[in-house]
Amino acid sequence: MTMLHTVNKSPLDRNNLDSCMSMAKKGSKILLIEDAVIGAMDNTAVAEKIKGAMNDFSFYVLGPDLQARGLDEGKVIGGINVVGYDGYVDLVTETDNVQSWV
């Protein structure tokens, strides 16, 4: 089974993403939405941790939430896929189950 995990809290403020990564199986997909999108940016205090985790998980980030916060898609960590709400829906249907780390 492949699970989709969604995270909506900033990893610079809360431990939701850490909890998610510690309990997600290798090969899981992780989608960053809402305030979590800052975690997808390069040169943040958590960027190296995310890059390291990319060996185990595929990361996605919700584009409209990046744009809303004035965060430049061009500065997203290489290898993280920017998706729209339609891509969000596809991620849910392509995986076997979803857990929201609210």
Binding site: E34, V89, V102
Partner: peptide, 25 residues
Amino acid sequence: TTGPYQHQASDTALQYCRAALEKGH
């Protein structure tokens, strides 16, 4: 699980619904 306006969650849920319906779900 959260009220409108205080958190973005209701908005995200609405956007998700619209996108899913658009795709025929």
